[in-house]
Amino acid sequence: MAKRGKIQGFEITHDINRPLRIKKYKYFYLIVCEDENTERVYFQGFEIRIPKETLYLDAVGTGLDPLGIVTRAISEKKRLEALCERSVDEVWVVFDKDDADLNDTRITRFQAAFKLAAEQGFKIAYSNEVFELWLLLHLSDVDPEIPIGRQEVYTRLESEIRQREGHEDFLYEHGDEAVLKVIAEIGDEQAALQRAEQLIAFHEGKEPIISNPVTFVGKLILDLYSWIEYYSYQE
């Protein structure tokens, strides 16, 4: 399991050298996420911990809204299945609430994303409001009773990082994946997992669109770790 104080195995990798013997892999794991930079790179960073030719991890960034992400996941699943000539074992969709409550059209699309994902058997790791809440949880507690907007998440994330020695001049820019290396260096992953579980427990039973703050990214991470541990043991 993940150790205290570090995102295990994280590494920013822009060009993944895909295995030549893809059909040799035992388990195919697809993550389709909202952000084309930070989120995609974050999940790709787990590849270096996976034993060779065991779990094939494919992380795809889309730049789409929640329903668009789930729809894209359907086509990405077909693409990967054609590539490996077998079924994909697990599909996760990762998206944020963002402005989903701005108007009736967006509310409808947000709710439809959950319905379509369930119909397809996809697992969902959503955050209300943003993915960066997961990063913030590596550094501090977040009160489950007080809704927190995305800009406040960004501001608090920058503030928490700047309080750490050696990072006093850090400036957070949305979409800049450099924040991932900083979190890997100074963050506490075990604390983030525990804090995320507390937020989930507090908002249990509520509609996702009003469950703020909450993030299910930790659920995805724990699932990934379980498979990495399984195949590491098998090796």
Rank of each mutant, 00 (worst) to 15 (best):
Q8V: 14
Q8Y: 14
F10H: 06
F10D: 01
I12P: 01
T13S: 09
T13M: 07
H14W: 12
D15A: 12
I16T: 13
R21Y: 15
Y29C: 04
E34G: 12
E34T: 09
D35M: 04
E39Y: 11
V41D: 13
V41Y: 14
E47P: 00
R49S: 13
P51L: 02
E53Q: 03
E53F: 09
L55A: 04
Y56N: 05
G61S: 07
G61F: 02
T62K: 05
G63R: 01
G63I: 01
D65R: 09
G68L: 04
V70I: 03
T71E: 12
R72I: 06
A73D: 08
A73T: 12
S75C: 11
K78E: 05
L80A: 10
L83A: 11
C84L: 10
S87G: 14
V88C: 11
V93T: 15
D101E: 10
L102Q: 13
T105A: 13
R106K: 15
Q111P: 00
K115L: 10
K115T: 13
L116P: 11
A117I: 03
K123W: 10
I124R: 09
I124T: 12
I124F: 10
A125H: 06
Y126I: 06
E129I: 04
F131Y: 10
F131T: 01
E132G: 05
E132L: 03
L133R: 02
L139E: 05
G149D: 15
R150S: 13
E152K: 08
R156E: 14
E158W: 06
E160M: 06
Q163P: 00
G166R: 03
D169N: 12
F170I: 06
E173C: 11
L180D: 07
K181P: 00
V182G: 02
E185L: 02
A191L: 09
L193H: 05
A196F: 11
E197G: 00
A201F: 13
A201M: 07
H203E: 02
H203M: 09
G205A: 13
G205D: 14
E207N: 08
I209Q: 08
I210W: 07
I210E: 15
V217H: 07
K219T: 06
L220G: 09
W227T: 03
W227G: 01
E229R: 01
